[in-house]
Design a protein around this nucleic acid. Structure first.
Lengths: 191, 191
DNA sequence: ACGCTTTGTGAGCACTGTAAACATAGCGCA
DNA sequence: TGCGCTATGTTTACAGTGCTCACAAAGCGT
C-alpha cells in the first residue's frame, strides 16, 4: 500500500517501481529496454525519463543495487576471512553470484563504469576495500593492494569465463569446486 | 585489385570488406551496427545478410579474428614461458591486449559464447590449451587444468576490471606494473 | 483559490535489426 | 554461343528502440 497504487495518473513511487520491474526482467532473463519496463510498469513509454536521465542511468542504478547485494553475499554471515581457504570461499561466492544472476552481473560489469555516477564508483570501491581488508587480515605482511587486485581479478575473471561459457562445468557444485581448486592451485605455486 | 572493386553491382569480396571495415570501426571506437558497416562499405543496408546470418554472426567472426590476434600476441616472439616471471608477462600481455583493443575485447568476451559457432568455441579452447601447456611446462607436478583456469581467470579478470575502470592506473606502464605485482603477489602467498 | 513545480502522456524523429520480394550478373552446361 | 541457375546485391517495409518536445494532470505552498 505504502509504495504503490495511489491515484491513477500519478504513480506514487514510479522510480522504485521501475527499478524493481527492471530487476525482475533482468532476473527473468528477458532482454530489457526502457520502453519495456515502462510498459510492464503500466506507464507511458517516456515516463521513465522523469526519473532517469538515460537508459544508462537506469542501468547504473541497477548496478548499484547489484553491488550492494554482491557485497552482502560476500560479507554476510561470514565475517572477515581468516585463512586461505576462507578466501577461496570468497571467490566461490563471487562466482556463484555471477552465475545466479547473470544478467545483473553483466549490467554491473558489462560496460565501462560511468565515472559520473558517484554511487556506482563508490560501490565498486567498497568491494575492492573489502577485499583489501580481508587480504590484509590474512596476510598482514604482504602488499595488500596488489593482493586485493589479484584476488578480485581472479574471482572476477573466473566469473566472466564461466558466465560466457569459455570455461565450462556441469553444475554449480562443479563450478564451486573448480574455482576453489584454481584459487588454491595458484596460491600454492610458490612451492 | 584482387580483393576489391570489380564491377559496380557485385562487390567481389564483400564478406572480407565488411569484416575489415567493422574491425576498423571497432578500433576507431565508433559504435557499430550492421547498417553502419554496410553504409561505410558502400553497400545497401541489407547486403551483409548475404554473408552473415545475424549481427551476432558478424560479431562472432570478429571475435574469432580477435582470438587469433590475442593468441599471436601471447605466443609470438615469446615461446613457451619457462618461469613464473614469464607467466606474469603472459598476464601483462593479455591485459595490454584488452586495453589496446577495448572494443574488440568486449566483442570477444562481452556476451555469452555462441555455442553454435564452432570456430569461436575452438578459438577460446585454443587459448585455454596454450595456457595449460605453458603452466604444465613451468609446473609439471601441479594440476595443470586448475592452474590454467586460475591463470586465465586472473589475467582476464584484471583485464576486465581495468577496462571497466573498476581498477585504475595512470598509464599503460602502470597497468603492466600492477598486473605483474598482482600476479607475483598471489603466486607467492603460500609462503 | 491561485499559480508553480513535479510527474505522467502523446506524437514524433532517427535509428536499429530483420524479412520478403525483386534485380543483376557471373558461371556451368546445352 | 546462348540459356538458365544461383549467388549476390537492392528495395521496401515493419516492428522495436532511445530520446526530445510540447502538452496535461495533480499536488503543494502561498
Amino acid at each position: 500500500m505504502s509504495t504503490s497504487e495511489k491515484s491513477g495518473y500519478h504513480h506514487g513511487d514510479l522510480r522504485a517501481a521501475l527499478l524493481s520491474t527492471a530487476m525482475e526482467m533482468l532476473e527473468a532473463g528477458e532482454p530489457f529496454s526502457l520502453r519495456a519496463v515502462a510498459r510492464r510498469a503500466g506507464v507511458s513509454p517516456t515516463a521513465p525519463y522523469r526519473h532517469f536521465k538515460d537508459r544508462d542511468a537506469l542501468e547504473s542504478a541497477l548496478a548499484v543495487e547489484g553491488f550492494r547485494e554482491l557485497l552482502a553475499d560476500l560479507g554476510g554471515g561470514r565475517g572477515l576471512p581468516a585463512s586461505l581457504p576462507d578466501l577461496a570461499e570468497f571467490a566461490v561466492a563471487y562466482v556463484a553470484f555471477a552465475l545466479r544472476r547473470p544478467a545483473l552481473f553483466r549490467v554491473m560489469f558489462g560496460k565501462p563504469c560511468d565515472d559520473a555516477d558517484d554511487e556506482r564508483v563508490k560501490a565498486a570501491d567498497a568491494l575492492h576495500d573489502l577485499l583489501a581488508d580481508a587480504l590484509d587480515h590474512v596476510f598482514p605482511d604482504a602488499d595488500a593492494s596488489a593482493l586485493a587486485s589479484a584476488g578480485w581479478g581472479l574471482a572476477h575473471g573466473l566469473a566472466c569465463l564461466y558466465l560466457d561459457g569459455k570455461l565450462q562445468a556441469a553444475s554449480g557444485e562443479e563450478v564451486a569446486d573448480r574455482v576453489r581448486s584454481a584459487f588454491l592451485a595458484i596460491t600454492s605455486v610458490g612451492s
